[in-house]
Structure formats: C-alpha cells, structure tokens
Design a protein around this nucleic acid. Structure first.
Lengths: 186, 186
DNA sequence: GCCAGCATGTAAGGAGTTACATGATTAT
DNA sequence: ATAATCATGTAACTCCTTACATGCTGGC
C-alpha cells in the first residue's frame, strides 16, 4: 500500500469545498471555488474538472450523473468516507507549505529606478483602489457569513482577509511618499 | 516586427537584478534573487539559467565567458541597451498582474471543520513564529539598505514587507481565539 | 575523509493556464 | 440579434520544480 505521489493542494481545496456542501457539479464548483480567491489562486475551470477526475480515480469523491430537460446533463460529486479521511489526514498530518506570494506591483517598485516616479505612484494608487474594492467585497462576504457556526472557519478566514487587505492599503500609502521623494530628486 | 509572446515576470525580475548591478553570473544571481523571496517566489537555480539563456537570445543581456584558475569558468551577464529599454517598457507599459497568493495555512483554516482545534491553533502558532522570523530578517535587510539612494526602491519594498509580515502576525493572533471558540464547542 | 562552496547544465514531470469545441435556453 | 447561463471536456502550452550530472578547491 505504497503512498502514491502527493496530491496537490488544489485537489484538497476542491475536496474541502465538497466536504462543506452536499453535492456539486464541476460547474457549481467553479462558483464555490471563487470563495478561495482572496487567499488562494482559484483554479481554472479546466483544472476543476481534471481535479475532480483525479479525486474520483482516488475514490475520494463519488459521482452521479443527472439528466435534465432543457439543460445539459450534470455530473454531481460528493465526498466519500475515504475522501473525508484524506482531508482529515491532510489537515492533521501534512506539513503546511509556506505562503507563496507573487506581488507583481512590489516587483516593479523594487526595480523602480528605471520607471518614472509618476508612473510608480499611479501604479500604487491603482493598487490601493483595487485593494479597497477587495475590502468591500470581503466586508460583504463577512456579513453574509454572519455568526452561523457552520461558516465559522470561512468567517475567520474572511476576518484575516479584512486585516490583510487593510494592511495592504496602509503599506501602499506608507511607501508612496518614498517614491515621491525619488521624483523630486531627479 | 511582430511582438513575440510575452516574457514571464521572472525574466524581468532577473533582468532587473542585472540592471542594478554590473555583471553577474548565474551563480551570483541565485544569491541576488533571494532578495525577492519576501514578495515574489524566488526562482529555482535551473530557471535562473534558462531565463538567462532566454534573455541572451532576445539580446537583452550580453554574456562574457571568464576563465578562472582553480574555479569553474564563469559566464557573466550584463544588461544591454535593448534590455534596459525592455525593462523600462515593462515598467511603463505593461499591465500589472494582480498579486497571486497561495496561503496554505488559510486554506487549511478555511476547512477547519475537519481538524482538531488544537491542531489549528498549533498551525497558527507555528505561522506566527515563522512570520516573526521573517520580520527579523527583514529588519536586518532594511537596516543594511540604509538610506543609500541607490537602494531607495528595495528599501521601500522592505518597508512594505515589514508592515506586511507584522499584519500577518496580528491577523493570525486575532483569529486564533475564533478557532479556540470552536474547540470549546465540540 | 567529508562537506561546503563554486559553477553550469540537462531531464523529466507536475501544476496550471488559455483557447477551443459543442449546443440548447433564456434574458436583453 | 446577441449575449449570458448552463455544462463538460480536450489540446497545447508555459512556468516552474526536483533531481541528477560533473568536478575542482578549501576548510574542519
């Protein structure tokens, strides 16, 4: 019973989403997976389907085909006992990867010596605007989750996210003058 | 003169590092690239070499082989005029990708209903410890950069990083009790 | 004797993406 | 008319990673 090669986090993410619901199609999952976008790259549609096939092959999800009138047929998935056990094992036993961040704005600021300062400031301003929009979204998400114990953990993550994006706007605003200083020099 | 397919950000990152220095080998770059690790996944050694070959093929860097006694031969790279122009074009003209985050801890907390609360708390504690270590590193980096105008932009990024990781420790500490609350329920 | 450092490179493969294909229904 | 929604799936490709290969020098 050799443990096969490790399953990627995205597969666990999909399995986890299924574990919080009853039965979902790949199409449904695409919407659910958007909930991850604040803290985890939400997978492409094609990947959702391929991960579902992987999970089915592992016996971690069960599938059921449902015909519909006037709509394409659905394939509904739900977690199996093995799937729940796999998720629990992942949560309890596997090492947590360090967060992977690719911050394209910071990459550009890092090489800011080659840009016009006004351009950098504009990029920072755009970023603050975008972060504020995420904040607004997250506030709504947080409100929708309420204090329903069923969504306690997503709610905790949303609260983290609120702090996260608030800190981003503050950090962006804080370094904006440094870039301005560079502007007044050249 | 059809614009070929876009060059990945990592290539610009390497080009940018070369633009801040005189001449570097792939081996040297591996160390320099570590500076990116706080805000951008720092590339694997093999990728550094392959990106350098790509940049050389584009004419954005020039290479020069240097024989050494008692050491393997070096291949030193420096940016060309075209390379500088490409970097400037990237900074000024190309759209900034939204930050991509893969926060494995938050993914696990999101699915926390399947974990023992003590486990989640331990994960959070580990994360806080790790974030504090990053903070210590960043403080040192920031101190080393000083107020040398040459490193103004890296310094600004380091300051962003200090806020970022401080916010992470705070967010982690803030949601820890929510997880604890779950513990007292079950 | 052994490991770290210097220095480059190949091979294999996994994770993830975009774009395409199909086709009916409903709303604008 | 046209777009969005429902619903799944394939093809091609890129990015990036790990592991391996090579080999000399210097310090402990």
């Amino acid at each position: 019973m050799g443990r096969a090669r490790p399953v990627p986090p995205t597969a666990y993410a999909i399995l986890g989403l299924l574990s919080m619901t009853d039965e979902l199609s790949g199409y449904d999952l695409r919407r659910w997976a958007r909930a991850l976008r604040f803290f985890y790259v939400s997978p492409a549609q094609s990947q959702i389907y391929s991960e579902l096939r992987r999970l089915a092959a592992l016996g971690w999800v069960a599938q059921r085909d449902v015909a519909q009138e006037a709509r394409p047929a659905k394939r509904l998935y739900r977690t199996t006992e093995d799937g729940q056990a796999a998720l629990r094992g992942w949560l309890e036993g596997s090492p947590v990867e360090p967060p992977a961040l690719k911050h394209a704005l910071l990459l550009r600021i890092f090489f800011g010596h080659l840009a016009r300062p006004e351009r950098l400031q504009a990029l920072i301003d755009d970023y603050i605007t975008a972060a504020r929009m995420v904040l607004a979204e997250l506030e709504q998400v947080r409100a929708e989750l309420g204090d329903d114990p069923r969504w306690r953990f997503p709610a905790a993550v949303a609260e983290w996210g609120l702090r996260y994006y608030a800190a981003e706007t503050e950090a962006a605003a804080a370094i904006r003058p440094c870039v301005a200083e560079a502007a007044s020099r050249e």
